[in-house]
Design a protein around this nucleic acid. Structure first.
Lengths: 135, 135
DNA sequence: TTGCGTGCAAAGGTTTTGCATGGCA
DNA sequence: TGCCATGCAAAACCTTTGCACGCAA
């Protein structure tokens, strides 16, 4: 009792590899599912939901909610690729994810910590809005 | 044809008044519906959805998508109220949602627009991090 | 009277859950 | 062998749509 050991399975490995190969993208459950269907690899939708949720809990995957009523997006958090030195800005129209490296924005973190006692997590915080192209 | 006149009805008036009385809160459809049910005022859920959506289109109500997969929240935009322009900060440990009204933070929007050509959407952007209590 | 508003029921789409089977260790 | 994982189907959930009736102007 109380073991709660996690097993390695083909499905988990396959899903993780797919996330890794598309680590620069925001993936929906459907996109992942459709890939495996087209590749003749049978993986259940439920399995993808459950495994991704577990990865989110472990802090290995980021989950995004862009539009209400629309399915969520997932993205693998890779070491070095998304450090705490910059922010993310996502366009709610075209879906493009921008990496914003700017010293002015880094002051946000300092301000929140000093004046609001809130330690912001750069890896989870995303600015949503409209980008240059879509205005 | 092409009239598209809007009628004033008891339901709309009742919903609007409820929004006004709770203008400092984020209300869900269920919260509004439950109030009218408990007050023995029969209002259909669909009516609330449709009227709030219309108010959002007219720019009189803000719609928030803060919680993951959870129903949307609505809030009346009142003149003079500082609630129209604020950020949300959510603690990833305890889940508490904080309303951060601060002129310093509002400069973020100006900075992003001027230097990065990005128009931030306050209603969808949430700062994630650790709050004072959980540190 | 005209036509928008209402509200019930049903549909639509995303996510979760129940449960029997499969597979890792 | 003991459990966890899987995957199908069904349920749960939030929201939208269809349609007949009600009501404002």
């Amino acid at each position: 009792m109380g073991q709660n050991t996690e097993y390695k399975t083909k499905q988990k490995e396959a899903i993780y590899n797919y996330l890794l190969e598309h680590k620069e993208k925001h993936l929906t459950i459907d996109e992942i599912l459709e890939y495996f269907l087209s590749a003749n690899q049978k993986i259940g939708r439920t399995t993808i939901y459950r495994y991704l949720e577990k990865l989110v809990e472990k802090g290995e995957v980021r989950k995004y909610f862009i539009e209400e009523g629309v399915s969520a997006c997932y993205q693998l958090i890779t070491k070095g690729s998304c450090c705490s030195e910059h922010f993310h800005a996502k366009c709610t129209k075209c879906g493009t994810l921008y990496h914003v490296e700017c010293s002015s924005l880094l002051q946000i973190g300092e301000h929140l910590r000093e004046h609001h006692n809130f330690i912001i997590d750069h890896t989870k915080t995303v600015f949503y809005g409209i980008c240059e192209k879509c205005q």
